[in-house]
Write a protein that binds this DNA or RNA. Structure first.
Lengths: 186, 186
DNA sequence: TTTAATTGTGACATTAGTGACACTTTAGTT
DNA sequence: AACTAAAGTGTCACTAATGTCACAATTAAA
């Protein structure tokens, strides 16, 4: 039940915030008010219905909500494939990146909901990946699942700097499934 | 998803607002209407397509939705900075990425016109970066300038798999300027 | 907590859509 | 050349939607 603020709708429609509020007041756009000062919220589905009703283009970022995906970052293809199998069995779409550069591009292009990250990829500092991602407000909702053969201390450090979960290699399919299902349903 | 009003298009085309509205009504120019009184909005991409279809000049302010930029990929910050200085002196905006992951994200986000790439970054295979980039039609116009301390053979191999130019470290500011100016003006 | 960013509001300034009509251009006809 | 018709475009006044601005209240972030 995701909602949008009046400001977000304003920027989606490339229209002034004032105008969005007037749309809602007129009943042209269905929404509701928060108890506080009456800030407006609109259900994504109502907004999409509104856009369709007026033949307005629907932003990709809203369409994408339909099929949230997982980005698997691991340089060892067999491992990546096995993660992908688990993901598929749980009903999720996924993409594999075997290098940092690919991972960056795919993250930006597919905007996945979850990224699994091998901390110990040769020549790539997993920590700095987490760091850099967390700095970007664009990816504040991205869930990062660290998967690594490193010790507990390393995994904990990853959690400290912004990872959302960690799994030690070798991981059980069950644990991975649990984590994925939890994050993908948020 | 930037849009234009009928008035903005009118002034771009140096035409009366009335006429723009008629274009939209006739279907000559694709657009949509706001819910209120039916004010017209046109996606920038649709407008550009319209201009091209009629061999009309495209205003600079619409071309790249920003000034074309350069992405500098180098793990050594001093080197990166010195490249950036050269770029700035030649009048170009630039961004620095010190890792593959950052490079991928920045490439995707900023869509630079030129990317300078250090081939010998630790733990990152420059060749696979070139390879992967060239596979994506999205970046077919991106110019890749390889900068490396490696030997001639390595540089030639980079050119073979898709780089557009190469410079051996240490490079002269003059040579770099020449290359950047050439590619940025294309 | 403190601080920064977002949001709602009212009054007012701008801009856009509409219809009717005049003007210009073009093409075809005599 | 001269005339005509048709199609496209510009003009004008009017109305309504949208944008702007400053300010206060709220919410989110640090």
């Amino acid at each position: 039940m995701k909602t949008l603020t009046s400001g977000e709708i304003a920027s989606y429609c490339d229209v002034n915030l004032r105008t969005v509020i007037r749309w809602i007041e007129n009943g042209k756009l269905k929404g509701f008010k928060l108890p506080g000062r009456g800030n407006n919220r609109v259900l994504v589905e109502d907004f999409i219905e509104f856009l369709e009703r007026h033949d307005m283009p629907i932003p990709d970022s809203l369409k994408g909500d339909a099929t949230p995906s997982i980005l698997i970052v691991d340089d060892e293809m067999p491992v990546a494939k096995s993660i992908q199998r688990v993901a598929r069995r749980a009903g999720f779409d996924s993409y594999i990146a075997t290098g940092g550069f690919q991972a960056g591009i795919m993250l930006s292009q597919h905007e996945p909901k979850v990224m699994t990250l091998d901390l110990s990829m040769p020549g790539m500092d997993g920590y700095s990946v987490i760091d850099f991602t967390r700095e970007q407000s664009k990816y504040k909702d991205l869930k990062i699942v660290v998967i690594s053969a490193l010790d507990d201390i390393s995994l904990e450090r990853a959690l400290e700097i912004g990872a959302d979960a960690s799994l030690q290699k070798p991981f059980s399919n069950h644990d991975l499934t649990m984590v994925l299902e939890q994050f993908m349903s948020m």
